[in-house]
């Protein structure tokens, strides 16, 4: 009788602990999504710095407009040869590319999402603003200093990654570090985040993505960020793209 009670209690405690942790993991991830994707819209300047294995740098600049999580226009301003090139991303993997030298746009369908975006170390997959809690199942690993460590497993089999290890800031719930593992369980990419508070929102002022295999790095730096300026769906059309 006594033993049974002890076992039962232990089971209940263990079970609640377990579910508490599971709960925690998805709560933490949801909070992280909130921090990252809560603004209604955003405009800003984006500086892309490509750094090769010899430390040589190449710099591109673009302006960004984004509405919600799934509408975005990238418009390149530098270097001169790429100035005016614009990319419009719409929901359901619809993308339009505008090349000013041709004076026309083309629709791009990319089913190959593991391809890198325009020579950066970000894949189309990484650039997608799909909520992490939609793409991944989280598991709580540990608390470490200032961060929660979560292990994210992709939902469905269509990811190139086997898991992503995320460090989430304990107080403000923005991600500090993400480590991507391939299916051979080798760490292939690392993203380092620097967040700053702008107005009511936390802004990723710099994301540094390192491709560990190629020893190649991309820094994306944001500046002149403005939130909730009232962008409408009309700002994200093909006609707008060509302007």
């Amino acid at each position: 009788m006594k033993i049974q009670t002890v076992v039962l209690t232990a089971l209940i405690v263990a079970g609640s602990l377990f579910s508490a942790n599971a709960q925690d993991a998805s709560t933490i991830l949801k909070k992280m999504d909130d921090v990252m994707y809560s603004p209604k819209d955003m405009t800003g300047k984006n500086k892309i710095i490509l750094i090769d294995k010899n430390g040589k740098q190449e710099i591109r600049e673009a302006t960004i407009q984004q509405k919600g999580t799934d509408k975005r226009i990238f418009r390149f301003t530098a270097p001169a040869s790429q100035s005016g090139i614009a990319v419009l991303s719409l929901p359901n993997d619809v993308m339009y590319l505008y090349l000013p030298a041709f004076g026309k746009e083309r629709r791009i369908a990319t089913s190959a999402k593991n391809q890198n975006f325009a020579g950066t170390d970000f894949s189309y997959d990484d650039m997608e603003s799909v909520l992490f809690s939609v793409k991944y199942t989280p598991k709580f690993v540990k608390t470490e200093g200032n961060v929660y460590v979560l292990e994210l497993t992709p939902i469905g089999s269509k990811s190139d990654y086997s898991k992503v290890m995320v460090q989430v800031n304990k107080t403000d719930y923005y991600p500090e570090l993400m480590e991507y593992y391939d299916k051979g369980n080798t760490k292939v990419k690392v993203a380092k985040y620097t967040f700053k508070k702008i107005g009511d929102y936390w802004n990723a002022s710099e994301i540094e993505m390192t491709d560990l295999k190629k020893n190649h790095k991309t820094k994306m730096q944001m500046s002149d960020v403005k939130y909730d300026t009232g962008l409408t769906d009309d700002d994200f059309t093909v006609r707008k793209l060509k302007q």
Binding site: Y96, L97, R106, R107, I108, A109, T110, S111, A112, Q115
Partner: peptide, 11 residues
């Protein structure tokens, strides 16, 4: 006709 399709030869 409508654009470019970048994808894998097979999924």
């Amino acid at each position: 006709e409508w654009g470019i399709e970048i994808g894998k030869l097979v999924d």
